[in-house]
Amino acid sequence: MYTQGLDQQSSEDKKKSARDSGSSEDAAALAAFQKRVEAEEKIEAKDWMPDAYRRTLVRQISQHAHSEIIGMQPEGNWLTRAPSLKRKAILLAKVQDEAGHGLYLYSAAETLGVSREQMVADLLSGKAKYSSIFNYPTLTWADIGAIGWLVDGAAIMNQVPLCRCSYGPYARAMVRVCKEESFHQRQGFEIMLELSRGSEQQKAMAQDALDRWWWPSLMMFGPSDTDSRHSAQSMAWKIKRFSNDELRQKFVDVTVPQAQFLGLRVPDDKLRWNDATEHYEFGEIDWQEFHDVLAGNGPCNRERMAKRRRAHDEGAWVREAAEAYALKQAERQAA
C-alpha cells in the first residue's frame, strides 16, 4: 500500500522548515550532503543529514507505515466472507504482508531517531496522516479485487522509484515491499478477471467496484504538480524521482488497457487516447472530495480511527502484562 505523505506537512513541520531556512546549519555540510545525493550515494542512518531531510523522511515513512496498518481494515472487512478457501488464504496472506510492511517501515523510520511509540501516538491522536484511499468502504467482494488491482497498482507506481530513494534504510525496505506489492496487484487483477468472465451479477459487481475505486485511486498520487508544495525539495534530495502528475499519467496509461482487457468501462467521459502525446487524456479529479477526505471527512475516516484506537486501548492491559512479566523475569535473573 502507499502513502500520500510527501505533500502533507503538519503546521509544526512548516514552522520548523521556516526556522531551518534561516538556521546556521553548516553551509559546507549542506553542500557536501547535496553532492553525495547527486552522486547517487545512499545516505545511512548515522550520516549527517539536514534536519529538514530527516523530518521529511520521518513524516513520509511513518505515514507510509500508518497507511499499511489502516489499509488492513478495508480488506480485513472481507476476510470472514471470502467466497472460497483459496481466496480467503490469499487475502489473509496479503493482509498479513501489510502488517509486515508496517513493521519494517516503522523500523526504517526508527533509524531516523523517532520511536515507534511516538509514531503510533501521532497516528492515534490524529496528528499523523495515512493515505486517503483507506477511508473508502469495501462494499462488495469485487472491492477486494479493485483494491489489489488499482490501489496496489498505484502504490507500485509510486514505490518502485522509492527503491532508489537517497535514504538507504527506506530504499531497502521498499525493495522488499515492492516485491510483495506486485504479488498483491496480480491477485487483485485475477479477482477482477474471474468476476468479469463470470455471471452477469459478478460482472456488474466488478464494474461497480471500478466505478467507485477509479477516482479515489487517481487521488492517491496526491495534489497536482501546480499545487504540490514540497515536491521540488524532495526531488532535489532524491527522495522523490517523479512528480505526482507524471506518476498519475503513467498509472492511467498502464491501467486503462487493463480495464479494456477486462471488458470494464473506466468511469470517465473525458478519457481518450491522444496519438500526438501517446498518453491518455483524462478528466479532472474532484479536488474538493480529495481535500474533504484528507481533512477527515471521507466516508470511513472516523470508523478507521475509532477502530485503531479501540484496538490500541483494549490492548493496554496486554502490553502492561508483558512489561510487568519482563521486569519480574529480569529481577529473578538478577537474584
Binding site: 496498518i69 488492513m72 481494515q73 476476510l79 470472514t80 489473509l92 493482509v95 502490553r319
Partner: peptide, 15 residues
C-alpha cells in the same frame, strides 16, 4: 482468528 485481524494489541501479534 481472522475475526481478530486488525484488533490485536501489538503489530507483532497481528502478524
Amino acid at each position: 482468528m481472522i475475526e481478530r485481524v486488525t484488533n490485536e494489541a501489538e503489530l507483532e501479534e497481528e502478524l
